[in-house]
Simulated assay, not measured.
Amino acid sequence: MNSNLEKTFIAFLKENQRIVHKVCRIYTDNKEDHEDLFQEITIQLWKSFPSFKGDAKFSTWMYRVALNTAITLFKKAKKNDLTTAIDVSSLRIEYETYEDDEHKLKIMYQAIYTLSDIEKALIMMYLEDKSYREIGEILGITEGNARVKMNRAKNNLKQQLNTK
């Protein structure tokens, strides 16, 4: 294993770790699942890192891998348990907790959790102040399609929040 590649990966991951936590927060509803998904996303990022060419920003690429992993895993999880045979313990990645104690945020995350997988991703990126162009790039859709999907996701979220 190339130690420079490993050092670069760890530096990028540490710098952008909050992205992974946010994806985990949107797609899980308890600490154990959050930690499991964090590990699975980290594994997928590490496996894919050699193919990262820098055409897009690292954070954009990381969002894409993290969202695809979360969506794919939870579709598979409905059929069977999550298992991965890759050992990433040698990477020495420090897991930082990401907790929000504010009641309003908890209610919003609960409402987001009820949305579809794509709507969760859209709302998360909206909360990150991503442009429609960036959202489209991350999801592999046009900017116009990102706008349409975002409006639907916002309306669905408003409906969820109004019922709570």
Rank of each mutant, 00 (worst) to 15 (best):
L161C: 03
R18M: 08
A153N: 03
G54N: 10
I141N: 12
D55G: 06
P50R: 11
G140F: 04
F38R: 06
Y63K: 01
T69R: 02
F9D: 10
L82C: 05
I41G: 11
T60F: 02
T97H: 00
T83L: 08
E96Y: 00
K47F: 14
P50T: 12
T28H: 07
K158S: 11
D36N: 14
K158P: 03
A66P: 11
G140W: 07
S48R: 03
G136W: 06
I10V: 15
D101E: 04
L105Q: 03
N155T: 09
I138V: 15
R25V: 06
K7V: 13
E128A: 02
E94K: 03
I26Q: 13
T84N: 12
I141P: 13
N4Y: 03
A153E: 07
I10N: 02
I93N: 10
E102C: 04
N68C: 01
A111F: 05
G140R: 05
T28Y: 08
D36G: 11
L37N: 13
M125G: 08
D36M: 14
T163G: 00
Q160E: 13
M1F: 01
A121Q: 01
E128C: 01
K106L: 00
E32F: 04
I26F: 10
Q160H: 00
T69F: 00
Q110T: 09
K154Y: 00
M62T: 09
I93D: 11
W46K: 05
T97F: 07
A85V: 06
R133L: 15
D100S: 02
W61R: 01
D129V: 09
I86E: 10
K158E: 12
M124H: 05
A66L: 00
L161F: 03
I26P: 00
F12T: 01
T163S: 04
E128G: 03
L67P: 04
R152V: 08
E99M: 01
Y126E: 15
K106C: 00
D55M: 07
F12C: 11
T72F: 05
M125V: 11
Q160N: 02
N162F: 00
V88P: 06
L73D: 02
K79Y: 13
D33E: 15
Y126N: 14
F74E: 12
A70Q: 06
